[in-house]
Design a protein around this nucleic acid. Structure first.
Lengths: 149, 149
DNA sequence: TATTGTTATACTCTATAACTATA
DNA sequence: TATAGTTATAGAGTATAACAATA
């Protein structure tokens, strides 16, 4: 007999993949950014920038990979590297003016796009979903979820 | 004001990431399978096989890409191609005995590990969670979730 | 010695378009 | 003509390990 929880986890994974792939396809279609690049731009948006280390932890991209992703974003003029004076091993990555403009343009597009999936949702639908997900998260990690966006 | 749905999507992503981390630095590392390859194995598990077309639709991998992914799984001896007699354009992809064994091996590992996270869940807790996730999936994809595991 | 980021390697995924075989 | 799958192409992501500079 299959364990009861597997059905729930499978549903969770399918929902996440469905959203990720939909939004990933949308990003590739409507912007010149890959999902990883978008993740970086979204993470840097509305911040003063952050180190490779922090950026890697937030986006779950390993440092060797991150170097290449940042290289490409720098070539596009969307981010810059700034060596830190306090600790010269560390490099700050931040959005350029163009990167910030792109962030607001793309992010608002992305919000508008994702919104389409929830046209049938009323306040109580969101509440019910959030309640179950928050409970699930608490059981998975023993803690409250962190706010990323 | 941030769109209401963003909170729910963020929760979804955090739950998924939490589960992946919890389930032991994720199945993919332990199996030697890439995410796409694992997706194929999981999709083919407990089925009689399916065509490239159907497999592509389920996993959202485009046909050109799918050829390469299936090639690598075939090299590993986990899947086979079977030309269809009814329509010789179509090719059935199915798990080999080794692929089926791998599917069940990973599956049982997942059962044993993930179970711990749900010690507090009763039947009605699972039902409530599944109800919300099924509704979410329907809105994200316009269809019922496909059973993968 | 430990940490931060880079480089090198080798592989995989990705979309797209042109192609072959079959219908 | 249309469909199923393959091949070719050119990029991008991925993990890993070895490396340099700095602490």
């Amino acid at each position: 007999m299959a364990e009861r929880y597997l059905r729930s986890i499978r549903l969770l994974a399918e929902c996440f993949h469905a959203f990720e792939r939909q939004s990933g396809a949308n990003i590739r279609c409507r912007t010149g950014l890959t999902p990883s690049q978008f993740d970086i731009i979204a993470t840097l948006g509305n911040t003063c920038g952050m180190s490779f280390k922090e950026l890697g932890e937030r986006t779950l991209i390993t440092k060797g990979t991150l170097t290449g992703v940042i290289d490409r974003l720098e070539e596009k003029g969307l981010v810059t590297r700034v060596t830190q004076v306090e600790d010269r091993r560390s490099t700050l990555v931040k959005l350029t003016a163009a990167g910030d403009a792109e962030f607001h343009r793309v992010f608002s597009q992305q919000i508008a796009f994702g919104k389409q999936s929830f046209v049938n949702y009323e306040a109580q639908d969101f509440d019910a979903l959030d309640r179950e997900l928050t409970k699930l998260h608490a059981n998975l990690t023993g803690s409250e979820p962190k706010q990323k966006y």
